[in-house]
Amino acid sequence: MALLTSIWRSAILRVARWLFALALLHAAAAQAAAPPPEYQLKAIFLFNFAQFVEWPPRATGGEQEPFVIGVLGDDPFGPYLDETVKGEKIGNHPMVVRRYRRAEEVGDCNVLFISRSESDRMGQIIAAFRGRSVLTVGDVDDFNRVGGIVRFVTEQGKIRLRIDVKAAQAAGLTISSKLLRSATLVTAEDK
């Protein structure tokens, strides 16, 4: 009976969730030009990095300090990122999304997505964050070559990760081996 009830409950919840997601999608489409669907997954990935990466204590700040996911440049996520992060917490830290136009604006930040719009200055931007405990993420082709830590690669319609472990170590970040196992590691020749 309990099993049956729980099955039913989960089924109802699942249906409800789907209905809710559909409603949101329609709302977003009505608001602006709809972002490509791959960014929905990338938003989730950005959110998930929080679970598989360890920041040094001072980077996340003290109690109640927010866990910041930043977007530098044009925001390709539409409403996805906000939806994903909304109300979520990592430990005691509430998650927030901050958007920056210039690198200088970036203050305390844990995960920073550097938009395609910043392609020309990518090397400079990344160099600016050298020595800061910021997980840099991007989806431009030479993101790793210019010193970015995590790059989204689309292969056969699937989003894959390419991670530069050395860059992460230089930033003082520890990336979970589990994350590394499901990603492609960047070697020196790749650069």
């Binding site: 990935f45 998930n48 699937k158 989003i159 979970s176 589990k178 994350l179």
Partner: peptide, 14 residues
Amino acid sequence: TNSTAALAFDVPDD
């Protein structure tokens, strides 16, 4: 525990 990353980053092979 070993399946978290596979699920988080959508890697069914893993």
